[in-house]
């Protein structure tokens, strides 16, 4: 009974300490737990992936053999294409050098595997990646796929990082319509990473909403929405999605649009963290 009483006081004290921890200390505690959990998460993620692949292979072995042959043929073709492109790149670099241009700007990308999606509480739209600070990933870095923007990194530990998806209402991105250049603020509407949009029928009709677009600017269904580069987190020109519906907002001063994401949020397996620019921006040397 006495032990119980001591334990209760220890727990109360511990909770008070946790609640009042300074932010850096709190982040260190979180990183410690996340790094410990990352080992199990990575292991489980790999095992599940292998099981899924094995099940898919066993399910249709004959088709897989044919697919393998087709892939071998395609690899041979692509190898030839890579050789051709390497020659073009060399040629291009030489021409740029002669014309006095700096090398073209490229993003430094860190390839990551999605370890799991969603946080333990379910209040946010997040996912965890298998790369962290040790691999050059930092906080507030853009996360993309080859199709478009996915989100930004929030907490980063040594071996993993958490990504706030653009579908989360807390994630706001400064964007512009590629065709007209009109600016707006894109906000997530809480679409599930599962992607079907069923729950959003209660509150929203699209995965994103583009707000504060000047009412004078023309906007059409199908217009591409890209990041504006303002705000400092997301590099300029990343494709976010396409307009599915547009109308005036309640104030009548701005337009708003429903936007569907370009990236397939339902099947995110591998993504890239944009860890800054790999080279200087393209500009003519004086």
């Amino acid at each position: 009974m006495h032990n119980d009483r001591y334990l209760v006081w220890i727990v109360i004290l511990g909770t008070v300490v946790l609640l009042n921890l300074p932010l850096p200390a709190s982040l260190r505690v979180k990183s410690g737990v996340q790094d410990s959990a990352a080992v199990f998460q990575n292991g489980m993620s790999l095992v599940i992936q292998r099981l899924r692949e094995w099940a898919a292979f066993m399910g249709d072995a004959k088709a897989r053999v044919a697919e393998r042959a087709a892939l071998q043929e395609r690899v041979a073709m692509l190898q030839e294409r890579v050789r051709e492109l390497e020659r073009v790149v060399d040629e291009s670099a030489e021409l740029r050098r002669q014309a006095g241009y700096a090398t073209s700007a490229e993003f430094k990308l860190v390839p990551c595997r999605v370890v799991f999606r969603g946080d333990t509480s379910g209040w946010w739209q997040t996912m965890r990646l298998n790369r962290g600070g040790a691999d050059g990933v930092g906080t507030n870095m853009a996360v993309i796929t080859t199709d478009g923007l996915v989100g930004r990194t929030t907490t980063v530990s040594a071996r993993s990082c958490e990504v706030l998806l653009v579908t989360d209402p807390n994630c706001k991105v400064s964007c512009r319509i590629r065709r007209t250049g009109a600016f707006g603020i894109l906000r997530g509407m809480g679409m599930s990473p599962g992607g079907t949009g069923r729950a959003e029928m209660l509150s929203a009709s699209g995965a994103f909403r583009l707000e504060y677009v000047p009412k004078e600017s023309e906007m059409r269904v199908g217009d591409e929405v890209v990041t504006s580069g303002l705000g400092g987190v997301f590099p300029e020109g990343l494709l976010v999605g396409r307009v599915t519906r547009q109308r005036l907002d309640v104030s009548g001063m701005y337009q708003r649009a429903d936007v569907m994401p370009a990236a397939d949020m339902a099947s995110l397996r591998y993504v890239f963290v944009v860890a800054g620019k790999a080279a200087a921006k393209e500009e003519r040397r004086p």
Partner: peptide
């Protein structure tokens, strides 16, 4: 109470919830 403390810490550390909530 010990279990609640540890469970809470695990949930908070593995999500964006501030520690202790």
């Amino acid at each position: 109470f010990g279990c609640a403390f540890l469970a809470g810490m695990l949930q908070d550390a593995l999500s964006p919830i501030p520690l202790g909530y």
